Simulated assay, not measured.
Amino acid sequence: MSDWHSSDSREWTRVGDALIAGIGSGMGPYEASYTVDRAPGRILNGSVSADVRLTDSAATGAGLVCRADQDWTFLAFYTAPQDMADESTVARLGVFLEGVLTPIAQLQEPVRLERGFNHFSLEFYSDQVRGEIRAGKRTYELETSCAHIPFPGYAGLVKFYAAGVLARSWSVERTRIPFVSAGSRRKEGQMFQYDVFLCHASETAKEVSAIAEALAARGVSYWLDKEQITFGDRVSEKIEEGLRGSHYVIPCVSSHISERGWTRAEYGGILNAELSGDSTRVVVPLLLAEAVTDDIPLLFRDKLWVSSTNKVEFDRFIDFLLSN
């Protein structure tokens, strides 16, 4: 882990290129240990995200840190049990100042993590901080003001109570744009649970999953079939729920998109409503890596489309989503 600094190098390691593993007992009353990614440099405003899995059977603690130095000072968003005998955990935002914990905010409802990986994200801009955990079909959000660490630092991972932790899909980004709070997104008259609905052909599932991760890293919420539909669900009902709850419908354009009846049904109804004057939901085509403009279905070739491979354009599109 040459780009990483750990409170104890014996407790953190890389497993191949995909996984970061935390093991060992940790220090202090919380048996805590942390590691930070030094490659992106020190960041004042930005976001960090990862898929995190607790490998122990008992409820233990883990999460993300930002604005960290290399001497036990950082802002943390994490989940940990109220009591070691608890099966559920509680999401918290807290500040460590040279190892001394100052609690900042705590979510009232318990967090029930999945046995596998759960998606953690942490956004920070000026004194505003927002943490989110996606565990299965549930999303837990915690947002507060925190003026304790107003200086740049590194982003990383933290674990408590000698937890065994695996992390993948690690992402760190800096930003000059304030993140959009959950409260603002759910302001009166805005009924959307998701920012975007991603519809795609099955052949492009891997590429679209990577796009979904990039959206989530910037704080854009999304509906994606493989995450929302499980065994026993009525597929058509789940798709309709997703469409009703999404502001923008994003057909992920490839050479296969026009061949798939489900995909046409997903964007077709919204497009027909839009052409009839209902702008409640909007279709925005997103061209995938191997797509060409001729792959765009005829009904929305006159729409301004977005390229998934043009980073500047794609980032500008995310800024648009967050501002709307």
Rank of each mutant, 00 (worst) to 15 (best):
L122H: 06
K311A: 14
E266M: 03
Q82N: 15
P152R: 12
L101T: 10
A58P: 00
M84P: 14
D233C: 09
V312S: 14
F314N: 10
T293C: 00
W4L: 06
D56I: 00
T35F: 00
L93W: 00
P81D: 10
R38D: 00
M84K: 15
C66W: 03
M191S: 14
P150G: 08
S308L: 01
R168T: 04
A205M: 00
A291P: 03
D3L: 11
R67W: 09
L322N: 03
W262G: 15
A32C: 09
A212H: 03
L75D: 14
D37T: 09
L97I: 10
G28M: 05
L64S: 11
V306A: 05
T144G: 04
S25P: 06
K311W: 05
G269Y: 09
T102G: 00
V165H: 07
S221P: 01
L75E: 09
R244I: 03
T79K: 03
F179K: 12
L142E: 03
G268Y: 01
T144A: 15
E290G: 04
F314W: 11
T55F: 00
H247M: 14
P297A: 06
E188H: 13
S255G: 12
T263F: 02
T139A: 14
L107M: 10
T102M: 05
G183N: 09
G94P: 01
E240F: 10
Y125L: 10
L64T: 12
E141I: 15
L215N: 13
N272C: 09
N45Y: 13
D51R: 08
T139E: 08
F317L: 08
A135Y: 07
P29I: 06
D315R: 14
S171L: 05
G94E: 14
R186L: 00
E173Q: 15
K187H: 04
A39Q: 08
D278Q: 09
V15M: 13
I239Y: 11
V306T: 02
R244F: 11
Y154D: 02
D233V: 13
E241L: 13
D225R: 12
G277C: 05
S57M: 04
P40Y: 00
G242S: 12
G41V: 08
P297V: 03
V52K: 06
F300G: 08
M84V: 08
G219Y: 06
D195S: 12
R115A: 15
G153Q: 06
T144N: 09
L198Y: 02
S49P: 07
D294W: 00
I270S: 10
